[in-house]
Amino acid sequence: MNALYAFFAVALLMLVAFFGVWGLGWNTLFAVMIPYAALAIFIIGLIYRVVKWARAPVPFHIPTTCGQQKSLPWIKSDRIESPSSTMGVVARMAMEILLFRSLFRNDKVQLEDKKRVTFQGNRVLWLGGLVFHWSLLIILFRHSRLFMQPVPDFMIFVRDIDGILQGLIPAVFITDIAILMALTYLFLRRVVFPQVRYISLPSDYFALFLLLGVVILGVLVKTAWKVDIEGVKVLAMGMFTFNPVVPEGIGPAFYIHIFLASVLLAYFPFSKLMHGPGIFLSPTRNLINNSRAVRHINPWDYPVKVHTYEEWEDEFREAIRGVGLPLEKE
């Protein structure tokens, strides 16, 4: 049911863009104004969310570690999984951001013959996530040819490697196939596995369907419903110089593609997609595990007025002695 809500939401968005362009002819709205607005919402929203997070104090070092902490010189410590230096943290964060290290540890718990609990490494989610994110990065990088004039050679080089399977014209890109497979898997796991389905919300499906919509339309504008790519670049470069012109004759599929991408961009700061910036701000990952070597003092600790036993004894010394109770200090 949750998946259906999200599906209809994305379908509705596609219909809005289709009728807006094909029926009403609001090309400038969908090609210029909405992308500009989405970009503004993305930039302001991203900064707002990150600054809001940064306002939350993290007084103590609370890394979740997976290795031996640095202690005595003859005990071998794990410098990356339990970082004792900034370099260790950088290496740990790099592994987390680039390779999803902690997801690699994902385990599947099973009850074997109703007698024994077994833990098994389950790397499928890790693989699906990694393939999706890296494909998305390369696809976004490939799109930069529409925003650059002249197009540098390294961009063409990446595109040529990605399009090395020259089965069709234009080339079928490895990342296009990979991202479609990964997104399909990420969707299916939410539907097929009852535990994951139970915790899946419409917003989980919405992000997936939105991405699937953008990707499928992106593939279609290259293959089935071809659009005038030169016109698209004229439009994109015009937006950069704040002098946008919408060329005639770019097919409606392009407008749906860019509208869904704009919605994704505007939705980003208010959604779970903020895990991207959030991973940099995870206190359990980005802090040095040095709480035994360095004393961390809570910055808002105020001086507490204390009354020690010694002071109390001084105050009532005579009375205590009078009833014959023992004293620490005579």
């Binding site: 930039i43 991203l46 900064i47 990150v50 930069s144 925003f147 650059m148 004039q149 002249p150 540098p152 030169e230 004229v234 470069m237 950069f240 110089t241 910036p277 940099f280």
Partner: peptide, 26 residues
């Protein structure tokens, strides 16, 4: 961090602006 992110993702603008051919059309 925020500044580095926005400089990185806007690299096409800087490359185009530096080349001086940003407004060229075929």
């Amino acid at each position: 961090g925020i500044i580095i992110f926005f400089i990185l993702v806007s690299f096409p603008i800087w490359i185009s602006a530096a080349s001086g051919t940003i407004g060229d059309v075929p």
